[in-house]
Design a protein around this nucleic acid. Structure first.
Length: 295
RNA sequence: GGGCAGGUAUCCAAGUGGCUAAAGGGCACAGACUGUAAAUCUGUUGCGUCCGCGCUUCGAAGGUUCGAAUCCUUCCCUGCCCA
């Protein structure tokens, strides 16, 4: 049977995506494209839970280690690089397997994004208000909560830079969905188990040298986007002497659990996904079999 | 044994007679989301509910009062200090 042109494996952190994808890729002549907002950073390996050297020698992984933590990264850049990788892989007669937990990155690949040239920063913060957005883009203002400053700023910057409301631009988007056969699988496990796996993973990161990694990285001037990676603020707080190591570990676990929850909310909304509920006794190979059978 | 401080919902914590099922925060759960997304933001959170309201809570038991988490009595427990 013929594989779809594009396969996605998404889901929350610690669901087991990477391992399962590796199995699937090997038996389907596929190459992996990471769909992850943090694994793109070169200097971070432990904290971003990057695929191992071994995994990468077995199956080519794309969109890993593509920028420095000193650089800003965003969905638009991701989309450009990923689109190129998809084309290249398909040209070689192989199947791109897109794997990761960054919901918005997946959405942008699928549904596209509109182009707005960067550099539209508004300096005067008194202009960055919800009230002003109401006059410039009433529709966006209605959708964005008055407390959601990040979105207010973006909507205002777009409105000012383009003269067009964000709400209208967002309708003019084109993605991959509909242009080729695409199959999307979302991995999930019982919440309790997911959280246990998160905690185990965080503990493991510490034994793998997380603190050392963060210490080195913190000497660089981190970009706004890179410094948000879970692990960096938590460990840096400890390095600055604000609390002990246990506390840093606890905070990382907590923040990762919250993140898992948000990921699930994001993915649950997208009705194009096929959910795979994994039970504790299933091996990555078995899950890969199930996915292969559903292609 | 004596002195002081304190015991409030799943956790921390405010509240010292009515406007209190009880501020605020945390956890948990749910949701939004399109160039920071591992981000940012929202809602619910004693129990039940025909969503009108009903029921049970503030260490325990009694008492004062029209009315108590708040006042009085006794008891139990925790922390610190003195012996």
């Amino acid at each position: 049977m013929k594989d779809p042109a594009l396969i996605f494996i998404v889901g929350p952190t610690a669901a087991g995506k990477s391992e399962i994808a590796l199995c699937l890729a090997q038996r389907r002549n596929a190459e992996i494209i990471c769909c992850d907002a943090m694994q793109v950073y070169r200097e971070i390996a432990v904290a971003s839970d990057k695929p191992s050297a071994k995994a990468r020698s077995l199956v080519p992984h794309h969109l890993v280690d593509v920028v420095s933590v000193t650089e800003d990264f965003n969905v638009a850049r991701y989309r450009g690089l990923a689109a190129q990788a998809i084309q290249d892989i398909q040209k070689r007669g192989k199947t791109p397997l897109i794997v990761g937990g960054s919901g918005m990155y997946m959405a942008v690949l699928l549904d596209g994004i509109f182009e707005v040239k960067a550099g539209a920063r508004i300096e005067d913060s008194s202009l960055l208000t919800h009230d002003r957005l109401k006059t410039l883009d009433p529709q966006a203002a209605r959708k964005i909560h008055p407390n959601d400053s990040q979105r207010i700023v973006r909507a205002l910057e777009v409105a000012v830079a383009t003269g067009q409301p964000l709400s209208r631009l967002q309708q003019k988007r084109e993605g991959l969905w509909g242009t080729m056969p695409i199959k999307i699988f979302a991995l999930n496990r019982p919440r309790e188990e997911l959280y246990q796996r998160v905690e185990a993973r965080v503990d493991e990161m510490f034994t793998k040298g997380l603190v050392e990694e963060i210490k080195q990285v913190s000497a660089l001037s981190l970009s706004v986007t890179a410094r948000k990676l879970i692990g960096i603020p938590e460990v840096m707080g400890h390095l600055k002497g604000e609390y002990d190591l246990e506390r840093a570990k606890y905070l990382m676990k907590l923040n990762t659990r919250h993140y898992v929850k948000r990921q699930l909310t994001w993915f649950r909304r997208d009705k194009r996904l096929t959910w795979i509920d994994i039970t504790p006794d299933q091996s990555p190979e078995q899950v890969a079999d199930i996915i292969a059978g559903a292609l």
